[in-house]
Nucleic acid binder design. Structure first.
Lengths: 229, 229
DNA sequence: GACTGCCTTAATTATATCATAACGATATTA
DNA sequence: TAATATCGTTATGATATAATTAAGGCAGTC
């Protein structure tokens, strides 16, 4: 689960935040001092930081700036006064969100979750890694090598599956038949690239409503094919 | 510069938003209807979306969800009631931020900038990676060989695309028809120079508002063509 | 060893795109 | 303003490319 560092000098608030976050299965550390907080922030690898603005030692402004110089993960600033939010924003310190005291713990948790979810969404390379591809009614499960169209399973042969999956994992990128043949059949294999055409045709019969108006694998005349998203 | 799509049925608000965003050099399109908005959102490639919650056609909830299924870029929700924010958050639609009406335009701009900056920080400069050319509402994606004019996609044939891209990649340089024919059709190919004219004509039909007053591909009489920037 | 299913190849049909030519429009020059 | 050169526009047939279908061969399975 994700790890969060809270830098906050009011112990009661810090503990409250920690309790609620731990209820949502986050691992939480607390640091009360700005200088030590920075050290800990840079040394440990946390998935998110929650910084109070007023702190002994380095204040929240400086802290945010220094952390951002090194880390990319979300930073949430906690302020006592609403007006300070504009100030922080204006300084362009790179904070991701702002919350004013007093706040409801559930709102804090909601925001933390949202930021972590977004971070994951943006950072993990979208194409690879995923074992399942799902787009407009087409679902591909790479692990079991099965394909569904609008909930209905279609039986795919090995080559058909590989071809469809390769295209779907690189959406909107156009590949020539030569490229497709090389990547899927192997560099050395000599053969007719019309094989690719035939397989595309077979795939379309299975996933397209109307094969002459393909919704998924589009023909780019004179260039190649692409998986449309 | 970044391109933003506003989906908002109250024209006065949409225009206000647009004006302020344009002052900060964003390119902005507006759509008033939920259904059309979704189409435009998915077809055009925008860097950010601003969605009103209450809309004719698809509402903001559904819209956000559907866009998020396909797009990774920031989504900002505009609501009339503060309470709705919790609702949206609870639904986990994948919105990045929320702002309640009435809001100050400068706050909107500040938030938009912050989100785009973060997005860039996390998925470093997508424009360069994606091989894109973007100039005055004309956007060319070389990887997927697609072209948009003011957010609307236009279908280009291979030769049309190659010709436009070549000119756009060498802005302000004048090429004679002979030069264009040689570079795009190949040195050896013998053929009529008027082929170039016809293709320029076809391209203009697709990207120019008024083909007799071209904004992009300019005719230099007796010399050739150039892509104006 | 026969059967089965998949892949490949090849041949045929369909289609998109392109090049050409003819004509009309517009800019340049005298 | 008239003449001329250049460009814009349109339609059409030719060509290149893709879709479709069928058949042969190969590999794996029983």
């Amino acid at each position: 689960m994700s790890r969060i560092l809270i830098i906050e000098d009011e112990e009661s608030i810090a503990e409250l935040e920690k309790d609620y976050l731990e209820l949502s299965n986050f691992e939480v550390d607390i640091e009360a001092d700005g200088d030590k907080g920075l050290q800990k922030a840079l040394a440990g690898n946390y998935d998110m930081y929650i910084l109070d603005l007023m702190l002994p030692g380095l204040d929240g402004f400086e802290l945010c700036k220094r952390i951002r110089e090194v880390k990319n993960v979300p930073i949430l600033m906690v302020t006592a006064k609403k007006e300070e939010i504009d100030k922080i924003r204006g300084l362009g310190l790179g904070a991701d969100d702002y919350i004013t005291k007093p706040f409801s713990p559930s709102e804090l948790v909601a925001r933390v979750k949202a930021h972590l979810a977004r971070y994951d969404r943006l950072v993990q390379s979208p194409a690879i890694q995923k074992n399942e591809i799902s787009i407009r009614g087409l679902r591909i499960d790479k692990a079991s090598r099965r394909v569904w169209i609008n909930g209905e399973e279609k039986v795919f042969t090995a080559k058909e599956f590989d071809l469809l999956t390769f295209l779907a994992e690189n959406p909107n990128v156009i590949f020539s038949k030569e490229q497709l043949f090389e990547t899927l059949w192997g560099e050395e294999s000599i053969g007719d690239i019309s094989t690719v055409t035939v397989h595309v045709n077979k795939i379309r019969e299975k996933i397209e409503l109307n094969t002459s108006k393909p919704q998924y694998i589009e023909t780019i005349w004179g260039v190649g094919y692409r998986f449309k998203v």
